[in-house]
C-alpha cells in the first residue's frame, strides 16, 4: 500500500493568528462597555469608523501590492489595531480625524513596512500620534463622565452620532458645557498653576485613584488583560515592565514631595496606562522578542510615560513612549538573547 509522505512533526498547531486576535478583541469588550456606560456611545462610533477605514485601507493596499485583500483581512490584526486606535480617541471625534489615523496606521505604519509581522511601529499608536499632531483641538475634546452629581451637559447617542458625522454640537450646547479636561490634564495644569496635588485630587472629577469613570474603565481593562495572561495570549513581562517603569519613579517622587507629584495610584489608573500595559505594548510584532527583552521594553515604556507626563508638553505619553521603544527593539533583541543550552554561561549566545 502506498502512503503520502510529509515532514515531521505530524501534529498540527492548535493556535492561529486569527484566534489570538479574536481573544484580544473579546478581552476588550468589558472595557468598551464600561466606556459606553461612563462616556456615552461615542467610542462605538469611533470603533465603527476606525474598523471601516482600517479594513478598507488594508484591502486597497493589498490590492496595490498585487495580493488578495482577504489574505490580510482574515487574520483580524487590522480590526485589533482599529479598536485600539478608537479606544485612544476622545468619545467626541469627527469621523475624518479617526479616518486619518486609521489610514495612516494601515498604509504607512503597517503595509509600507511589509504588512503583518514586519512593521517596526505599533500601527495604532503611529496613527494616533499623527492625528494628535494634525488635529490637536479635536483631540482635546474629552467629555465629562456621566455621574449624577456632576453638572455637565451630555450628548445622547443620536447627538453623538451627528457630531461624529458632522463635527457639530447641537445648537443648545457649546464645547465649554460638554467637554472637560482629562484628569491628567487637570493634574498637569494644576501643578503648573501652583496647586498642590491634594487640592487637585479634591476636584469633583477625581475618584479614588484616577479620574471618576476613568478608573473604572481601567479596572475592566485590567480584567481583560489578566484574562489574556491566563490564556497565555500575552505574557506577564511587558505589563509588569510597564508597571515597574512607571510606578517606581512615581513612587519615589511622591515620597520625596507629595505636594507637587501625583500619587503612583493616580498614574496607574489615569490616561492610557493600563490599556498600554495590557493591550498596546503587548503587540508582539513591534515589541522585543525574548522574555528579558520584553521586561526591558516594558520598563522603558513605563519610564518614558512617566517622563513625558512629568516633564513633557503632553498630558499623557503612552503613544510617544511606545513608538520610541519600538525603535529600540532591534537593539534590545540583539543584547537580550537567552543563552543557548550547552553554550556555557560565559558565552553571549
Amino acid at each position: 500500500m502506498k502512503f503520502e509522505r510529509r515532514e515531521a512533526p505530524y501534529i498540527r498547531p492548535a493556535n492561529s493568528v486569527s484566534l489570538v486576535m479574536l481573544q484580544v478583541l473579546v478581552a476588550l469588550v468589558p472595557a468598551v462597555a464600561a466606556h459606553v456606560w461612563f462616556f456615552g456611545a461615542g467610542i462605538l462610533y469611533n470603533i465603527v469608523v476606525a474598523v471601516i477605514f482600517c479594513a478598507g485601507a488594508e484591502a486597497l493596499v493589498m490590492r496595490a501590492r498585487g495580493r488578495a485583500p482577504a489574505e490580510a483581512l482574515a487574520d483580524g490584526s487590522a480590526i485589533v489595531a482599529a479598536v485600539l486606535l478608537a479606544f485612544a480617541l476622545p468619545s467626541l471625534t469627527p469621523w475624518w480625524v479617526t479616518a486619518t489615523g486609521a489610514v495612516f496606521a494601515m498604509v504607512v505604519a503597517k503595509h509600507l513596512y511589509g504588512g503583518l509581522g514586519y512593521n517596526l511601529f505599533n500601527p495604532a499608536m503611529a496613527g494616533y500620534v499623527v492625528i494628535l499632531i494634525a488635529f490637536p483641538a479635536d483631540m482635546a475634546l474629552w467629555v465629562a463622565p456621566r455621574m449624577g452629581d456632576l453638572d455637565y451637559q451630555h450628548l445622547n447617542a443620536l447627538q453623538t452620532l451627528w457630531f461624529t458625522l458632522s463635527g457639530e454640537l447641537p445648537s443648545a450646547m457649546s464645547f465649554d458645557t460638554v467637554s472637560r479636561a482629562t484628569p491628567l490634564d487637570l493634574m498637569k495644569t494644576g501643578l503648573a498653576g501652583m496647586q498642590t496635588a491634594a487640592e487637585i485630587r479634591a476636584e469633583p472629577l477625581m475618584g479614588d485613584f484616577g479620574g471618576r469613570g476613568w478608573e473604572w474603565i481601567g479596572n475592566f481593562i485590567a480584567i481583560g488583560g489578566i484574562g489574556l495572561m491566563l490564556r497565555k495570549v500575552i505574557r506577564w513581562h511587558i505589563p509588569v515592565g510597564v508597571g515597574i517603569g512607571l510606578l517606581v519613579p512615581a513612587t519615589i517622587m511622591y515620597m520625596i514631595d507629595a505636594g507637587s507629584h501625583a500619587s503612583p495610584g493616580f498614574h496607574l489608573f489615569s490616561g492610557a496606562t493600563l490599556l498600554c500595559a495590557f493591550f498596546i505594548a503587548t503587540d508582539p510584532v513591534s515589541a522585543a522578542t525574548s522574555t528579558t527583552g520584553r521586561l526591558i521594553y516594558g520598563i522603558g515604556i513605563g519610564l518614558l510615560i512617566y517622563a513625558i507626563r512629568r516633564f513633557g508638553a503632553y498630558a499623557d505619553g503612552v503613544a510617544f513612549a511606545v513608538l520610541t521603544m519600538n525603535m529600540l527593539v532591534p537593539l534590545i533583541d540583539r543584547y537580550t538573547r537567552p543563552p543557548i543550552v550547552g553554550h556555557g554561561p560565559e558565552q553571549p549566545g
Binding site: N15, V20, G115, L116, G117, P284, V285, A287
Partner: peptide, 8 residues
C-alpha cells in the same frame, strides 16, 4: 502567515 513574533 507571516511570523508575528509572539515568541511562543
Amino acid at each position: 502567515l507571516p511570523c508575528i513574533r509572539c515568541g511562543d
